[in-house]
C-alpha cells in the first residue's frame, strides 16, 4: 500500500501546481473499512491516529487541546506523529511552525478526539491566536457532519487580528484537483469541494477519504507568511443515494396512510351497519 502522503506529493509534483509546503496529512490505516468505525468526524480511539508532517524539516509541532493547553509533538524522521487521546472530547489542533529570516510558515489541522465532554467550545480553539496568517474554518464541521465532495465550506482569512481581504487562497486535493479563490473585503472565502474521486463505490465506508489542502501566502513588512490548512473529505453520498427515490417513498407512505384511514373507516362503518 503506497502511503497517501506520497500520492499527494507525487500528484502535486506531477501537476506542478504548488510548491512543497509545510502541511499536515493523515495517514490512513490500510483497511478501507476501518474508517467506517468512526462517524461524523469522530476519531482517535484505540491505538491513536497517525499524521504526517510534510516538508517538516526544522519545524516545531504541537497539539493544542480544546482548552488551549499545549502539548509538544515529536515527529519522527518521516514526519510521523501518532495522536493519542487527550482525555477531552472535541476538536484539537495540530500546529506546526517554522520561522526563518523573512519567512514564517504554519501548518494547521483540526482533529476530533473522543474523551470526556469538554466545556470549551471549538470556537475558543479556532479563534485563538496561532499564526500571524491564519485560515479559520467558519465553521468547522460539526458532529455527524463531515467534509464531502460537492459540499460548500467557508473560511476566514486573518492577518494578525484583522481580516485579510483580496488575497488568493488555493485548494489542492489528493485526487489532483486545483482550485483558487480570493478572500472578499471581510476576509471571507468559500470552496465547493470538487467531486473528483476517480472511482466512487456505493457506500460511505467503501470509499477512502481524500485530502484537501488550503494554502495562503501574504507578504508584509518584509516577511513572507505561508499558512496551510488540511483536512480529509469524503465522496458525495449522492452517488449512491437517490433523492427522487426518497421523495417517492415518502409520497407512497403518505398515500398508503390515507388509504389505510379510508379502509379502516369503511370497515368500521360496515361493522356498525351489520
Amino acid at each position: 500500500m503506497i502511503p497517501r502522503t506520497l500520492i499527494l506529493t507525487a500528484l502535486l509534483a506531477l501537476t506542478g501546481t504548488t510548491q512543497a509546503a509545510l502541511s499536515w496529512s493523515s495517514q490512513l490505516p490500510p483497511n478501507p473499512h476501518a474508517d467506517h468505525a468512526g462517524h461524523g468526524g469522530h476519531g482517535g480511539r484505540g491505538a491513536g491516529t497517525p499524521f504526517i508532517l510534510r516538508d517538516g524539516d526544522g519545524a516545531t509541532a504541537q497539539l493544542r487541546l480544546p482548552t488551549l493547553v499545549r502539548r509538544a509533538l515529536e515527529p519522527d524522521a518521516q514526519g510521523l506523529v501518532t495522536l493519542q487521546p487527550s482525555g477531552l472530547l472535541s476538536y484539537h489542533l495540530l500546529l506546526a511552525t517554522r520561522s526563518s529570516p523573512g519567512r514564517e510558515e504554519v501548518a494547521l489541522r483540526y482533529h476530533y478526539l473522543n474523551g470526556k465532554p469538554s466545556d470549551a467550545s471549538p470556537s475558543l480553539l479556532v479563534n485563538s491566536r496561532k499564526a500571524t496568517l491564519d485560515i479559520i474554518p467558519a465553521p468547522l464541521t460539526r458532529e455527524h457532519q463531515r467534509y464531502q465532495a460537492n459540499g460548500a465550506y467557508h473560511y476566514l482569512l486573518r492577518y494578525g487580528d484583522l481580516p485579510l481581504a483580496n488575497t488568493e487562497v488555493r485548494l489542492t486535493t489528493s485526487n489532483g484537483s486545483v482550485l483558487s479563490t480570493t478572500s472578499d473585503h471581510r476576509g471571507r472565502l468559500s470552496f465547493t469541494l470538487p467531486d473528483d474521486f476517480p472511482e466512487v463505490q456505493a457506500g460511505r465506508g467503501a470509499n477512502r477519504p481524500a485530502e484537501f489542502l488550503l494554502s495562503a501566502t501574504h507578504t508584509q513588512a518584509g516577511t513572507q507568511h505561508l499558512t496551510t490548512l488540511s483536512a480529509d473529505y469524503h465522496a458525495d453520498p449522492a452517488h449512491w443515494r437517490s433523492a427522487l427515490g426518497g421523495w417517492l417513498a415518502l409520497l407512497g407512505g403518505f398515500v398508503g396512510g390515507l388509504a389505510v384511514v379510508q379502509f379502516s373507516r369503511n370497515s368500521s362503518e360496515e361493522n356498525a351497519r351489520d
Binding site: P237, G245, G246
Partner: peptide, 20 residues
C-alpha cells in the same frame, strides 16, 4: 430524504424511514 442503494440493509432502512 433519500433511498440508500449502497447495501440491502441501508436500502431497507431508508425505505422504512421515508414510508414512516
Amino acid at each position: 430524504v433519500y433511498l440508500d442503494t449502497s447495501s440491502d440493509g441501508y436500502f431497507v432502512l431508508s425505505l422504512i424511514a421515508n414510508l414512516l
